[in-house]
């Protein structure tokens, strides 16, 4: 069981949260100029790393706000949470 740290509510059990997938995937600014391959990349392709992962979580059963978490997908160690628009605790995206 993971203990996630909501930036607004503090440490809470993972069962209170909804997972939102890989973070920092920006919606294309000019969708009409994208090729099919670029759309596929945006919509479907994922890093899915074994190791450091920047991901989105929503506090579904709490304040309902979304934030990002830096977590290791192999050890499940959590580096920390950061608000949308902030930089990850471990630096570099």
């Amino acid at each position: 069981m993971l203990i996630l740290h909501c930036p607004w509510c503090g440490p809470r059990s993972q069962t209170e949260f909804a997972y939102g997938g890989e973070a920092h995937i920006a919606r294309p600014l000019s969708p009409e100029s994208l090729s099919d391959a670029e759309w596929a990349d945006y919509l479907f392709m994922r890093k899915n790393p074994k190791g450091r992962h920047l991901e989105q979580w929503g506090h579904a059963m709490g304040c309902r706000r979304w934030f990002n978490v830096e977590r290791d997908t192999a050890t499940y160690a959590i580096q920390g949470s950061y608000k949308m628009g902030e930089e990850p605790p471990g630096g570099q995206r």
Partner: peptide, 18 residues
Amino acid sequence: GHSSVIASMAGIRLPLES
């Protein structure tokens, strides 16, 4: 489950999540 890890060795992106 390790497909994405191996794909990344060849610079290929896959639409998978493990």
